[in-house]
Design a protein around this nucleic acid. Structure first.
Length: 449
DNA sequence: GCATGATCATGC
DNA sequence: GCATGATCATGC
């Protein structure tokens, strides 16, 4: 074997990668010496020294080495266990003018990704390396990643490095990277506000798709076989152009859909984009973690309904802190595609689409306030305010609380409940109708217009 | 008329 | 059976 990993050729690297396929970390470190973490063990195999240089690990071959876990879900599908964390972003030194000169591109243009199977029932040293992939970004992925990079770059340029959210971008993220959430670093375009240290990363959902394409046979449809020329959102708009202005009924006729399912609009969008399956199961939506949502606008421009999200468990929320809460994680990692229908001459007409994610400043202020208030009410048993006939009114934050979101029932019926960790003071009930966080209709209107 | 509680329709 | 997406319905 070559003594210096930096000098290995691509072919030599792939040969070595083949030799560790099907082995556990225990077996490898027995053979090569145990230097600690998984990444270090693998670097030992390839005779490269840990470094944080701006160049790829295999300098000559131009390949960066990555080691990452995946898992088998309860339903048998595979998922990445975590995002793939790449190089740190040095806010002050990053090249902010040219993507091809950025630290991201210089280091990660080509990656050898080694996958190991995570299993919570096993000890870490028994995890097995099962696959590897020499990864180059496809043309369309690269287009999207360049746009993502510009979004991150613009935040830094605008002195907004502290407001970067993973959901701002589609595939390439800028994840926080610090010993704890309190460590902060300076940023070049703001003298007053420090930001969390961050690293480039490929989103968990992006990694999941890589894994499924590599290891499972399931067919995943792509929205874009053609080259993406403009932004992802605009490219979809171009595809949808001939359907704007058509009513729901017209669209149902065009695609011969008879269903009255409540997700009919997602089905229609899928057909309009030329997909056989659902748009939420398309490669692009899965990779970027985009959830489609219907918005109905009335003739005068107002929106009647607020927007629901998955329910939360009362007993879970009280054991969370905001920073590690399910709600924060959800809005920090999820993008939404609003499918906008507007009422015209008594029918709802397909108007437009809009990609949206909650900005960090709103997430960590208004959404947090609603969450903290909700947690406090559950902890103290202040749930029911009064009862009126069959209806039970609660203390949960309502639409007037701060104009962004509120808490309301979201269940099959009133008897569809989760346990309350603390009995309700007024009635003594120990379980309550499932609730979720809702985005206010007025807030959605402000996003759409 | 709007806010808030309640519930529907479907698919997995 | 239930999560999900969506909308209905009551009463203030």
């Amino acid at each position: 074997m070559n003594k210096n990993g930096n000098q290995l050729t691509k072919e030599e690297i792939l040969v070595i990668a083949d030799t560790i396929k099907g082995t556990t970390f225990k077996e490898i470190s027995y053979k090569y010496g145990n230097k600690g973490g998984f990444g270090l063990v693998i670097e030992e195999v390839f005779c490269i020294n840990p470094n944080s240089r701006p160049l790829p690990d295999f300098e000559e071959a131009g390949i960066e080495l990555k080691v990452t876990p995946y898992k088998i879900n309860k339903n048998g599908t595979l998922s990445a266990k975590e995002r793939l964390v790449l190089n740190n972003i040095n806010y002050k030194n990053e090249n902010l003018t040219d993507f091809h000169k950025s630290s991201f591109w210089k280091k990660n243009e080509t990656m050898l990704i080694i996958f190991y199977l995570f299993d919570e029932l096993k000890e870490k040293r028994d995890f097995m390396i099962t696959n590897h992939l020499l990864h180059n970004f496809s043309e369309n992925d690269l287009k999207i990643i360049k746009d993502d990079w510009r979004i991150i770059r613009d935040k830094i340029k605008n002195g907004e490095a502290h407001n970067i959210s993973e959901a701002d971008t589609l595939y390439l993220g800028a994840c926080t990277k610090g010993v704890n959430s309190k460590s902060l670093v300076g940023q070049p375009f703001s003298t007053t506000i420090k930001a969390k240290p961050r690293a480039y990363s490929l989103k968990t959902t992006y990694m999941t798709l890589l894994i499924r394409k590599l290891m499972s046979k399931e067919k995943i449809e792509k929205i874009f076989d053609e080259k993406i020329e403009t932004s992802f959102e605009n490219q979809m708009r171009i595809k949808l152009n001939r359907f704007f202005g058509k009513s729901q009924e017209e669209l149902k006729n065009i695609f011969k859909i008879r269903s009255n399912a409540k997700n009919i609009n997602e089905l229609l969008l899928s057909r309009m984009l030329g997909l056989k399956g659902k748009v939420s199961k398309s490669e692009e939506f899965l990779k970027a973690n985009i959830i489609p949502k219907t918005v109905r606008v009335e003739e005068d421009g107002h929106i009647v309904e607020s927007m629901s999200f998955p329910t939360f468990e009362f007993s879970k929320i009280i054991n969370e802190t905001w920073d590690d809460s399910e709600l924060r994680d959800y809005f920090e990692s999820t993008k939404f595609l609003f499918i906008v229908f507007k009422k015209e001459n008594d029918v709802y007409v397909f108007k437009d689409i809009k990609l949206w994610n909650m900005q960090i400043s709103i997430l960590d202020k208004q959404a947090r306030d609603v969450w903290e208030k909700t947690k406090e009410l559950i902890e103290t048993g202040h749930i029911i305010k009064r009862i009126s006939g069959k209806r039970r009114f609660t203390y949960f934050p309502d639409t007037t609380f701060n104009g962004v979101c509120h808490v309301r029932p979201h269940a099959k019926d009133a008897e569809d409940t989760y346990e309350l960790p603390v009995k309700d003071i007024l009635t003594g009930v120990e379980k309550y109708t499932k609730h979720c966080f809702w985005l206010n209709n007025t807030f959605i209107k402000s996003i759409i217009s």
